[in-house]
């Protein structure tokens, strides 16, 4: 069996989609592979939102992917910092329609009021086609993407360091 080819994709600007990311750093700029020293987040402000998706570009011998889970597997969220997302195991609020990333808190509009999980979720916390955990038929029409994972680092005036060494891990079940 040849495994399906998946990757984490980031969307920036109008709709520029990039895979093969070398990091998922948050910063004060709408761009991928951010160097945090170049784009630091001033205490009391927010990072630009990140709009990520898991994409499948080749099926191999597989037929479908489902049971999507995403979490922060490394990285310490420091004092006076919140890492917000739309990922959620209960009450998933559907697919969010892409909008150019902003440093404004738009969590009410794009449903990213949840704290980014820091351990493997028990249940699916990401959707496909607007439904949490739904199966992605990869027999045709690739590349296909999950719903967007929208996230933002929000700080208060006392913050002196945001999220150090943040690494996103994703998981799914692959059926052939």
């Amino acid at each position: 069996m040849t495994a399906a080819t998946t990757d984490l994709y980031e969307t920036n600007g109008a709709t520029v989609v990039t895979g093969g990311l070398s990091n998922v750093n948050m910063g004060s700029n709408d761009s991928y592979n951010i160097v945090t020293a170049t784009y630091p987040i001033v205490a009391g402000t927010n990072s630009f939102e990140k709009w990520h998706r898991i994409g499948c570009s080749a099926k191999g011998t597989s037929t479908s992917l489902n049971n999507w889970k995403v979490w922060l597997s490394s990285g310490a969220i420091t004092a006076n910092v919140s890492f917000k997302t739309n990922l959620r195991e209960a009450g998933y609020e559907g697919a969010q329609t892409y909008n150019t990333p902003s440093a404004t808190d738009r969590s009410a509009t794009y449903k990213y009021s949840q704290t980014f999980p820091t351990s493997t979720p028990t249940l699916t916390n990401l959707g496909y086609g607007g439904t949490a955990g739904a199966a992605m038929d990869i027999s045709s029409g690739l590349t296909k993407y999950t719903d967007y994972i929208v996230s933002q680092l929000q700080t208060t005036a006392g913050a002196n360091q945001g999220l150090t060494g943040g690494v996103i891990t994703y998981q799914y079940d692959e059926t052939s």
Binding site: L21, V24, N25
Partner: peptide
């Protein structure tokens, strides 16, 4: 039942 549980840790500056 038969499937593969696939877990992908994305790239970072450390790994």
């Amino acid at each position: 039942i038969h499937f593969h549980k696939v877990t992908v840790r994305t790239a970072s500056e450390k790994a």
